[in-house]
C-alpha cells in the first residue's frame, strides 16, 4: 500500500529534486493514510539514504548493484516495477529528469497504470484521483482524472518543497531480478561537465542570449552565476552557434526550468524561450531594448547595456552576501 518514491543519485549524492519527491510522496501518503517507501539504485552511502528518509520515508529499499550506476532504462524500469509490486504500491512518485522521462512511461505501461506527466500540485483525492499537469510547454494546465488502480506521477520541480520531517527509516537491501532484456542497451561512455551546477536542479539560473554578442563574453554570465551559486543557461541561437553547449539551451525545444530565480540577459523573450522558463518563481530581465518582449514575462527589469550592468550587478550581489 505504501507510496513508492524513486530517489535519484548523481555523483554519489541524492539529487535535491528527489528530496522534493520524497516530501511530495509523504504528503500523498498522509492523505491516503499510508507510509512512504523510497527506492535508491546504485552506489550510495547509508547517511545519504538517511537524509532521504528524513524527508518523509519510513522504509528505504536500496539496490546497490553497480549496474545501476549508469542510467539503464530497462533495468531501472524493472527495479521500480518490482519494488512497486513488493510494496503493493498504488501510487508511484518520480520527479522529472532525463532518466525519469525515459522510465516513467515504461513503468506505467508494465503496471497497466495511469501516468501523469509534469504534475504541478498534490493530487486532489476528493473526487477520485485528480492531478494538475503543465501542458503546452507551460502555457496552460490540464486537470486529469487518473482512472487505473495504479497511478504513476512524474512531478515537476518545485511541485512541492523538500521538507525535513526528521523521520527515520529502515534501510533494506533490495535485489530485483533482472533479465537479459534489461541489459539490451549497452553503455559505452559518458561525457559530462563535472562540478557544474545542473541546470535542471538549480534554484537560480543565469541565462545569456544573442545580446552577449560572442562566446568570449560568457565570463560575465559565469561570474554572476558563480556569485549566486547559479547554473548557466542560454537561448537556442546561442547553442546553435556553439557559443554554449547544447545541454544549456533553455526553452520550448530545450530544457524547461522552474527555478526560484531566472535571470535573462540579452534575451529578447521569444515565445519559444518563455515556454521553457514560465514556471520560474521570479524572472529578471536585462535588455538594452525597452520594448523587448522579455519584459512582459519578467517580474523585475533593467533596461541597459549588459556589458556595463553585469559587472556592477555581480559586485552588488557579492556585497549583499
Amino acid at each position: 500500500m505504501a507510496v513508492l518514491v524513486f530517489i535519484e543519485i548523481a555523483e554519489g549524492e541524492i539529487k535535491k529534486s528527489s528530496l522534493e519527491a520524497v516530501s511530495y510522496a509523504k504528503s500523498v501518503a498522509d492523505a491516503m493514510g499510508t507510509s512512504v517507501t523510497a527506492l535508491a539504485l546504485g552506489t550510495i552511502s547509508n547517511s545519504e539514504l538517511e537524509n532521504a528518509a528524513k524527508h518523509g520515508a519510513t522504509k528505504v529499499l536500496h539496490a546497490a548493484d553497480a549496474v545501476y550506476n549508469n542510467q539503464v532504462i530497462n533495468a531501472y524500469t524493472t527495479a521500480l516495477v518490482e519494488a512497486a509490486k513488493a510494496e503493493g504500491s498504488t501510487v508511484i512518485v518520480l520527479e522529472k529528469s532525463s532518466i525519469v522521462d525515459a522510465i516513467a512511461p515504461r513503468i506505467a505501461a508494465r503496471l497497466n497504470a495511469s501516468l501523469a506527466s509534469n504534475v504541478t500540485e498534490l493530487p486532489n483525492l476528493s473526487n477520485g484521483f485528480e492531478v494538475e499537469c503543465s501542458i503546452f510547454t507551460g502555457k496552460a494546465f490540464a486537470v486529469n482524472k487518473l482512472t487505473a488502480p495504479i497511478k504513476v506521477l512524474a512531478i515537476k520541480k518545485n511541485a512541492h518543497a523538500a521538507i525535513d520531517h526528521g523521520t527515520a527509516a529502515t534501510i533494506t537491501a533490495f535485489n530485483p531480478s533482472l533479465s537479459a532484456a534489461d541489459s539490451a542497451v549497452k553503455h559505452i561512455s559518458t561525457e559530462k561537465a563535472t562540478g557544474d551546477i545542473l541546470l535542471t536542479e538549480a534554484d537560480i539560473v543565469v541565462s545569456g542570449g544573442r545580446g552577449l554578442k560572442a562566446s568570449e563574453n560568457w565570463h560575465l554570465i559565469e561570474n554572476l552565476a558563480k556569485t549566486l551559486g547559479a547554473a548557466t543557461g542560454c537561448s537556442k541561437p546561442v547553442s546553435d552557434m556553439h557559443w554554449r553547449p547544447h545541454h544549456e539551451h533553455v526553452g520550448q525545444t530545450g530544457i524547461k526550468v522552474s527555478p526560484s530565480l531566472y535571470i535573462a540577459v540579452g534575451i529578447s523573450g521569444a515565445i519559444q524561450h518563455i515556454a521553457g522558463i514560465s514556471s520560474s518563481k521570479v524572472i529578471v530581465a536585462i535588455n538594452s531594448d525597452p520594448e523587448a518582449p522579455i519584459f512582459k514575462a519578467a517580474d523585475y527589469g533593467i533596461v541597459g547595456d549588459a556589458f556595463q550592468i553585469l559587472p556592477k550587478l555581480t559586485a552588488a550581489f557579492e556585497a549583499a552576501k
Binding site: 542510467q71 532525463s98 549497452k186 559518458t190 561537465a193 557544474d196 545541454h247
Partner: peptide, 12 residues
C-alpha cells in the same frame, strides 16, 4: 542520449 549536464553513448 542527453543526460543532465552532458550526454551518454549507447549501443543497441
Amino acid at each position: 542520449r542527453e543526460i543532465e549536464g552532458g550526454k551518454e553513448y549507447l549501443e543497441l
